[in-house]
Write a protein that binds this DNA or RNA. Structure first.
Lengths: 193, 193
DNA sequence: TGAATCATGTAACTGGTTACATGATTGT
DNA sequence: ACAATCATGTAACCAGTTACATGATTCA
């Protein structure tokens, strides 16, 4: 149900499906990726339920756009979602599942490469978070102020991204160190044999 | 596709769907929750594809059990999955989506309560991670050794849970402090008006 | 005798991905 | 002329949840 509410939340001003996809890729992707095809289907369903209404509008560039706007019922539905308790416990991490079973392979060098790949991705992610935070401070026009309600809350989710990613990198370093130590220990005991 | 491979990974020894559910709830739940109904369906599909085979076995207590075991093809499929690159970027965090839009409500007291709820859940989670780690060190029989391939890899995922959860708690503390500061600042400027 | 646990499964539904089809406009 | 971007959408499939049905065994 959450994508439904996220779309309602983004539609403070009227937007098209294409616009919404751009917002996901710019700002929400790290905690909620979304495909265009899914966005279009949900928009249609929300209109069917009376939470949105749409009209066709000519575009500056390219074909006509279907622009969606919140209805009264849509605003109510959004408010109800925001009044609820935090929902969590259904996060899934594929790479941790892979790692969990990687012992099977008896190949610590593979584990090491695997964790180094994770580290590289997290590093890139951290860089892009830091870049956004820097711009937030320096380019006051492009971002909402940190003392407005919108800016404060959007910034909180960025901060969570930073904290989590830093923690992930610490874990990578710890893991790489431990894997190397274990490999060294094993090859030593093998030489002694 | 990942639940498929996780089940293959868990089936080093023959197990029933019910057994597998217990393992999820004990060990994998924090990075991969799974419902019994889903487990049963996937097991059936994997048997249909020839990756598993099952036989009925009498139970010590309760009705007969359908016990699944890996086939040669199943082992191959698992190995291929483990040979791949780490998959990520499809994690979804509902509570961050809620928080992102909570600025709408113009009610920092609600945000504060919301984040305190997150903090309480993370605290409970951290406690249970720490308990497991303590037991791992003290109760050498119940857990695989940290220098075996299985133990090392399973422990890595626990460590990630610890690092992430600690980071989440740091974020909660930071956020609560900032929210209180902003509330104080606002009520002060209101009094001056 | 009644609740808890053991045990398997189906049906209906919700949510999401991948691949495909279509076509206009813009910039090189 | 061609590629990139703008723009909307469908179809087939894959993944997961909730609710329900069924029944045996164990333990208080």
């Amino acid at each position: 149900m959450s994508l439904d509410h996220i779309l309602l939340g983004l539609l403070k001003e009227p937007l098209s499906g294409y616009d919404l996809k751009a917002i996901f890729d710019r700002s929400l992707r790290y905690f909620w990726p979304a495909e265009l095809s899914q966005i279009y289907r949900v928009l249609k369903r929300l209109e069917g339920r009376g939470l949105l209404k749409s009209k066709m509008r000519p575009s500056d560039k390219g074909p006509d756009r279907r622009v969606y706007a919140l209805t009264r019922a849509g605003q109510r539905s959004l408010r109800e979602w925001l009044a609820g308790d935090p929902q969590f416990g259904d996060e899934r991490f594929t790479y941790l599942a892979q790692l969990y079973f990687m012992g099977e392979r008896r190949d610590l060098a593979k584990t090491l490469r695997f964790v180094e790949q994770i580290r590289d991705s997290l590093r890139r992610r951290l860089d892009s978070f830091r870049k956004i935070e820097r711009e937030w401070r320096t380019d006051a026009e492009a971002y909402p102020g940190l003392e407005t309600d919108e800016g404060f809350h959007a910034h909180l989710t960025l901060r969570m991204g930073l904290h989590r990613t830093e923690a992930g990198l610490k874990w990578c370093d710890e893991t790489i160190r431990r894997a190397k130590a274990l490999m060294a220990k094993r090859s030593k005991s093998e030489r002694q044999h």
